[in-house]
Design a protein around this nucleic acid. Structure first.
Lengths: 201, 201
DNA sequence: GGGGATCCATACTGGTCGGTATGTTTCTTG
DNA sequence: CAAGAAACATACCGACCAGTATGGATCCCC
């Protein structure tokens, strides 16, 4: 609660991190409603009391978990966005940093799409904004430059970025990981499909 | 329960259809756990007793709803698959029949991806199979022919079909419908992106 | 080393919801 | 039209779970 604090307990920050990480893993496996606070507490090695000491309720715990994962990535992503080169190179670099993340961190991004309907509108839009600014909008910036440079055809870049994310998410399925045996091939496939299409030649 | 029946009540088949349709609309808006049997009953104009008279439990109601929607479409889809022409033409025809479906029927296909984690393995794989045979596998057939004819580059067609479905699903979002003002433009955009990519020229 | 705050555990409550038990109506069949 | 079955409605139960209340342990500061 006081990350800049002078000399207060930092034992709590460790348990908070534990709770958030355990919650992320559980929310990934089961739907929001099917994950109980007791589950999270048990996975984190604490009790419900500890959880409710650090988080007001289940919703805010979920939001905190999501934002923790997203903001943790943000620096990496922005580096890829700010990197030099063609649109294709930058998008490839962006996707590589994404694919090279540990699996749990990667897959959490799919949660927003899945669970978004469970939340009502204060929390709902909060989650959507956090997600969009972390992923699609970053891609949007790269694509925007691509259109300006004539590297991409004229199109709605926001829509394009969503579709690109959708394609990449298919790459996170177990089947896709079975088809390719290394991340470079995955990467090349996605980039080639997005820029050149599936058509021959 | 006796669709071939001699002269039994067919009032029940009407209420069953009501229940299934109301359930579909509700499951589309809220997550599985957040839709109660009472909600479904109320939306269908009956009570819980009626629901539990026709369906053993909540799970089987969900499965029945999904299968009803999918098998209803199957004839239409197979016609598009069996139609003549190039891979591109057939895929376009397939997608058009999909996009021209009433919105509720269309969007139900997104449910499988969303709710699949809530079910355990007898029901889970049942749902996946029903979905895959209704959509991705039909597309797979078309793409398979495209690869054989040299119209598509060599690639894993199952993966390609999933990615195509993912792209089309992005077209079902409210934002995408705001970008285009008719379905023909949507269709052309998706087909062009898939075959030719987003790159210029 | 006492006072106070933070941290966490245990016990409990209120409400919700899936499912059941049982009554009541409506249709079919003989 | 009587008898039975199917199609519903109503009332209720039991389990589960988010959230609370409260007590005890741990640490900081003076």
């Amino acid at each position: 609660m006081d990350p800049l604090g002078s000399g207060m307990y930092d034992k709590s920050t460790a348990t908070i991190a534990n709770i958030l990480s355990s919650a992320g893993a559980l929310f990934l496996r089961k739907n929001y409603a099917d994950v109980t606070i007791a589950d999270i507490a048990e996975a984190a090695g604490v009790t419900k009391g500890a959880v409710y000491h650090h988080f007001a309720n289940k919703e805010s715990l979920y939001v905190a978990m999501m934002q923790a994962v997203l903001t943790e990535k943000q620096a990496l992503f922005q580096a890829a966005v700010a990197s030099p080169g063609t649109c294709r190179e930058r998008l490839k670099r962006f996707t590589r940093t994404f694919l090279e993340l540990p699996r749990e961190k990667r897959d959490v991004t799919k949660l927003v799409r899945r669970d978004i309907n469970t939340f009502k509108d204060p929390v709902r839009s909060q989650l959507i904004l956090a997600y969009q600014s972390a992923l699609p909008e970053q891609i949007e910036i790269i694509l925007e430059d691509g259109v300006r440079a004539g590297e991409l055809g004229l199109a709605d870049v926001r829509l394009l970025s969503w579709m690109y994310v959708a394609i990449v998410e298919v790459m996170l399925t177990p089947y896709a990981e079975r088809v390719f045996d290394n991340q470079n091939d995955q990467l090349d496939f996605v980039i080639r499909l997005f820029f050149n299409g599936a058509g021959a030649n």
